Computed example of a mutant assay.
Amino acid sequence: MSKTLEFFFDLGSPATYLAYTQLPKICAQTDSRLIYIPILLGGVFKATGNASPATIPAKGRYMFQDLERYARRYGVPLKFNPHFPINTLMLMRAVTGMQLRHPEHFQAFIDCLFHAFWVEGRSLDDLATVASVLTRNGFDPDEVLALTGDEQVKAALKDNTDKAVQRGVFGAPSMFVGDELFFGQDRLEFVLEALG
């Protein structure tokens, strides 16, 4: 029986973007099932007392240099987003809403948003920019925006975030194979071993 990899993610994390580019390959290689679990990273930080490495200038500069090294190693594009960090509440509600209401379009939805955020460097905390990105990718911005106000969607994102914290998540990307937590896109070798 194949194993399951739970991927707790927030679009606003560049390390999460890099993990997202690699996890489907890892799961295909190990005949594992990838489960995407949207969380609100700001909520995780608040609950755990953690903060983005970018809040420490020297660490932030190093982090982005290191992420660029990994992007080259993985052979994927990565552009530092000049609008980083942004409040991702609206985006992650939209992601959760698409997963709940339109699962058949979920992958294409996160694909276009990750690309806009970490390849194009778009300002995804601006409604007009988000609407433009969604329209260009075949999504109706009004329908997506309506999802962000859906009480069930709001509750699901909060529940995902609360459960992540209860399981020991303190940042993103966080991945679980069974009860074993792996944090960071630089731990994918361990994820591969755990799934192998």
Results as ranks from 00 to 15, higher is better:
residue 164 A to Y: 05
residue 176 F to M: 06
residue 12 G to D: 07
residue 44 V to I: 14
residue 2 S to P: 13
residue 73 R to K: 12
residue 72 R to Y: 04
residue 71 A to N: 09
residue 191 V to R: 04
residue 166 Q to W: 04
residue 97 G to Y: 06
residue 145 L to R: 10
residue 171 G to Y: 02
residue 95 V to F: 03
residue 28 A to E: 15
residue 155 A to T: 07
residue 166 Q to H: 09
residue 105 H to C: 14
residue 165 V to S: 12
residue 146 A to P: 00
residue 91 L to N: 00
residue 115 H to Y: 12
residue 100 L to I: 08
residue 50 N to M: 13
residue 60 G to S: 03
residue 172 A to H: 00
residue 6 E to W: 05
residue 162 D to F: 10
residue 23 L to N: 06
residue 57 P to G: 10
residue 29 Q to F: 10
residue 136 R to K: 14
residue 87 N to K: 07
residue 45 F to S: 05
residue 87 N to F: 08
residue 107 Q to Y: 12
residue 108 A to T: 01
residue 171 G to P: 01
residue 5 L to R: 06
residue 179 D to R: 12
residue 47 A to D: 10
residue 60 G to R: 01
residue 141 P to L: 13
residue 162 D to T: 11
residue 2 S to R: 09
residue 186 D to S: 12
residue 140 D to R: 14
residue 80 F to Q: 11
residue 19 A to G: 01
residue 68 E to W: 02
residue 158 K to E: 15
residue 78 L to E: 02
residue 148 T to N: 00
residue 188 L to P: 04
residue 65 Q to W: 06
residue 178 G to W: 05
residue 22 Q to S: 13
residue 69 R to M: 11
residue 138 G to E: 10
residue 72 R to A: 14
residue 42 G to P: 00
residue 80 F to D: 05
residue 9 F to Q: 03
residue 54 A to Y: 07
